[in-house]
């Protein structure tokens, strides 16, 4: 049994820089000098941050964040 791996991604075309993701999960998201967000590293979500990743998705007003299961 392996637990699935998840990855977060920010759609740059949709992100308007509300910074909800960065303020609730700075471990997973970073912002550039313009306040626009991107995933930290390759977006892999450590298992203990999965809840935070889900919360970020559910609080992005622009629906810019996706959380996907990485196929093994």
């Amino acid at each position: 049994m392996t637990t699935p791996t998840y990855r977060v991604e920010v759609d740059q075309a949709k992100c308007q820089g509300h910074n909800r993701c960065y303020s609730m999960a700075p471990e997973l998201f970073d912002v550039d000098d313009y306040g626009l967000a991107s995933a930290v590293g390759d977006g892999t979500v450590p298992p203990d941050l999965l809840d935070k990743a889900r919360r970020a998705v559910a609080n992005c007003p622009e629906y810019a964040i996706t959380l996907t299961e990485v196929p093994l």
Partner: peptide
């Protein structure tokens, strides 16, 4: 409230530029 995609700062291209300051 955990799921809160509120629109107080607007939506889309005019999203409040001052939202970080206002918060």
């Amino acid at each position: 409230r955990v799921d809160n995609r509120h629109a107080a700062f607007g939506l889309g291209i005019h999203r409040c530029l001052g939202s970080n300051l206002a918060r």
